[in-house]
């Protein structure tokens, strides 16, 4: 359940950027090959955010497609699986995209 620890890391980044303002929305980028489950993260986030500026904030997750490059034939193709096989039959692949685990931005309440 590393998502609780991931959520705590997110809350820390968010709290620093919010600088005391109430956070309404947190936008994340999660790659399909990152090993992080968006559902589990959404489940843990309220617990991690409790008592911080990010309490009750909505979580927006932008999923980033996984892309692999075949070391044998050089082809690049989209895949959501770490066990993908290239159309040439090789499974010697490099991850090009899909490892992302980023806090993109937040929306805070403007002080009255």
């Amino acid at each position: 359940m590393h998502e609780l620890s991931i959520a705590s890391n997110i809350v820390e980044l968010v709290a620093a950027a919010a600088a005391g303002r109430k956070v309404r929305r947190v936008t994340l980028e999660i790659g399909q090959l990152s090993g992080v489950s968006a559902e589990a993260l959404a489940f843990c986030f309220p617990e991690a955010a409790r008592g911080t500026d990010a309490e009750n904030a909505d979580l927006d997750v932008v999923e980033i497609e996984g892309v692999a490059r075949c070391e044998a034939c050089g082809e690049e193709f989209a895949t959501a699986s770490l066990l993908a096989i290239c159309s040439c039959g090789s499974f010697r692949l490099q991850r090009v995209k899909g490892d992302e685990l980023n806090v993109k931005g937040i929306e805070v309440e403007e002080p009255a």
Partner: peptide
């Protein structure tokens, strides 16, 4: 006091890797 969509929100860009500190 804030209904959904009510009140002005301010967008703040962060663009940081979650595990940057680790």
């Amino acid at each position: 006091d804030r209904l959904p969509g009510e009140g002005r929100g301010l967008k703040v860009e962060i663009e940081a890797r979650v595990l940057a500190k680790n």
